[in-house]
């Protein structure tokens, strides 16, 4: 991506369901693909002892998202909004 012009700032996010082994009941996951590249794996918290059961956790991030520690997201839409902000061309 050149990072110049309107075309380059278009970010297409695709979500693809995937089961994830987290060594816990949190299994329901989503691959997040941005313009064809895998950028993140989100996992829905199911373990009853979590503070925010049902919310989405950034299980793994790649590229610019690697190592990010963020609070969980109440919905997938919230997660995607945050991901878009992070992936915005600099």
């Amino acid at each position: 991506m050149s990072g110049r012009g309107n075309v380059a700032t278009l970010l297409v996010l695709q979500l693809q369901p995937i089961a994830v082994d987290t060594n816990s009941p949190d299994r329901e996951g989503m691959l997040v693909i941005a313009n064809g590249l895998l950028v993140a794996v989100l996992v829905r918290l199911a373990e009853p002892e979590h503070d925010n059961v049902g919310s989405w956790f950034l299980e793994a991030g790649f590229g610019r998202l690697q190592g990010q520690r963020v609070p969980t997201f109440p919905t997938l839409e919230d997660a995607c909004r945050w991901l878009r902000r992070q992936l915005k061309p600099l």
Partner: peptide, 18 residues
Amino acid sequence: IADMMGLSDVHVNRTLRD
């Protein structure tokens, strides 16, 4: 614990459970 160990709350929760 998460802020001490460089982990997320979620990982701390899972680890203590384990």
